[in-house]
Design a protein around this nucleic acid. Sequence first.
DNA 1: AAAATTGTATGATAATATGCATACAATCTC
DNA 2: GAGATTGTATGCATATTATCATACAATTTT
Lengths: 125, 125
Amino acid sequence: MLGALTLQDNGVPIYVQLRDQIAAAIGRGDLAPGARLPTMREVAVTLAVDLNTVQRAYAALEEDGLVTMVQGRGSFVADPAPPARSRSAEIRTLAAKVAAQAQAAGVSLDELAEALRHLSGRAAP
Amino acid sequence: MLGALTLQDNGVPIYVQLRDQIAAAIGRGDLAPGARLPTMREVAVTLAVDLNTVQRAYAALEEDGLVTMVQGRGSFVADPAPPARSRSAEIRTLAAKVAAQAQAAGVSLDELAEALRHLSGRAAP
DNA sequence: AAAATTGTATGATAATATGCATACAATCTC
DNA sequence: GAGATTGTATGCATATTATCATACAATTTT
């Protein structure tokens, strides 16, 4: 199942954020082959984003062979599940980026890791 | 030392890619506080990118408190920020922001916390 | 068959990103 | 002091991104 999509105001285009989050969910196995994606209009409404923007994201996913779209039916995870990419490097990249923010905020990595552990113990906000 | 900066044609704005890569290098410790960043013109030339674009990336890094720019001298990694006033609240705020980024990247908080502990030089519990 | 749902498409508009050229200001080097 | 280096700034042109509005086409539901 696809976790909640979220948008950030960090300069990355909205359609890229959507594409990458959905691609990550598929690669992670949260969305199995054949599973139905949320309706473009659903995504557009819940995220307060234009339908064209969602369409662009879905089209990019289809371009990458991750998703197939059928008019009148919906959009689905493509059948041959693409091999899950190695995530360790991606995680390390994120960790480094986060570490920079922590340093800028004067927070040690241990303190941040501890706070994250507490956050992960609760339900997703 | 800053590893080679690379640009990808994945829809992410160039200045965002530069900002994130340099921020990651700082957080990773590859660029220590006080270390000099490559000249804006150096980056612009070697990556075949406009000077304005590099400037935008550097300005964003300064905005985030990661870099300080001095006219005529160059740009340098900022000294770590002094401890915040209400420390626990500050940490929680940062953790929440970071949690959003992790979700956007398809990385669980546990994975991120683990990577952060690794970065800080400690073994996992 | 009719209505609702869902993907597909278009045109207009505003904001943003990038490149190109040029110039100024502060600092360093000689 | 003169020249080179480096950050800072501007104006213009073009492409990309996002929104709004509207409409059509294929499929499902009633």
